[in-house]
Nucleic acid binder design. Sequence first.
DNA 1: GTCCATATACTTGCGACTTCGAAGCTTCGA
DNA 2: TCGAAGCTTCGAAGTCGCAAGTATATGGAC
Lengths: 144, 144
Amino acid sequence: MSDPPEKPELSANLSREEAVALRDSFDPEERERVESTVAELLDLLGKAHAMAVLSAFAFAGEPLRFSDLESDIDIAPNTLSARLQDLTGAGLLDRTAYDEIPPRVEYTPTEKAEALFPVFAHLHHWAIEHDLSADGTTDEDGGE
Amino acid sequence: MSDPPEKPELSANLSREEAVALRDSFDPEERERVESTVAELLDLLGKAHAMAVLSAFAFAGEPLRFSDLESDIDIAPNTLSARLQDLTGAGLLDRTAYDEIPPRVEYTPTEKAEALFPVFAHLHHWAIEHDLSADGTTDEDGGE
DNA sequence: GTCCATATACTTGCGACTTCGAAGCTTCGA
DNA sequence: TCGAAGCTTCGAAGTCGCAAGTATATGGAC
C-alpha cells in the first residue's frame, strides 16, 4: 500500500535551477496556479503541528488513530482535531470511522500525502547531519 | 547498513523504510537527539511564514533583504522580523548589516539552510502535479 | 541655509485569530 | 460506576496582522 513503484521520481533533489526552469516552462496561467498552490500548501503546513502529523504518518506506514497521534505528538486534542479536519479537507488524509464500541477512527494518508512524504524523510535525514542549536557546530561536512 | 557513514546524499527520495532503518542504526542516544531535532525543526518551520521565507531563499539563489522578502511574501513586518530572528537564531540564515544610509541588511542562507532547500523544490514539484482544493479532483494523475 | 519628503529596517500598540489545558460528552461492556 | 475512544466546549494565553512610528542621512524645494 505504500509503494506505487511506477510513480515518476518526483525527486526532491531537484536543483533550484531545474525547479525554476520547470516552472517557467508552463503557461503563465498554469504557473500562477502552481504558485498559489504552493502558497496554500505552505499555509496549511505552517499551521501548528500540521507537519508533525504528516510526519507521523510518513514514518508509521500504516493508518493511525486519534489517540496514536495524540501520544506521538505533543498536541492538545482540540488542535489535533482541527488539524485532522484541515488535512482531510485538503484531501491529504482519509477518515474512516468504524461503528464499534468503543468507536474507532482511522486516518489514512492519501496518495497526495504520500507524494509529500519524501519531504519528511529528508527533514529527518537533515536532522541526522545537522543541528538546530544556534551555534551550528554540526555543519562541518564539506557541502559542494 | 546501506549507507556509508561518510556523506550520504541527503537525498530526499529516501523511502520510509530506508529512513527508518537509517535512524534505527544509531545508538538510542543519538536517535533521541535526531528525534528532538526533528521536532524542533518542525516546530520552527511550523511558525507563520517560516517556510515561505526559506522557500524565497531557495528560489532566489542570492542574498535577500528585508524589503525583498516583505514584497515577495504576504507578511506583516513584525512577523517577518520575528521569523528572521528565529531563523538566524537557529543558524539557518546569516544576517549582514551594512553601515550605510539608508541602512541595508542582507540575509544569506547558511549551508544548513541550503541542505533544506530540496524540500522546497519538492514542495513546488508536488504543487505542479497536485492540488489542494479539498475535493481533490486533481489526483487523477497516474493514480491507482 | 533650513525644512520636508524619501528610503530602509525595524519596533510598538492594539485587536483578532489560534492554540493550550482541562473537563465533559456518548455509548456500551465489565 | 468505571473505563475506553474520539471528540467538543470553555476560558486563558500566546501569536499574528495591521497601521503607525523610530532613526539616520541624502536630495530637493524654498
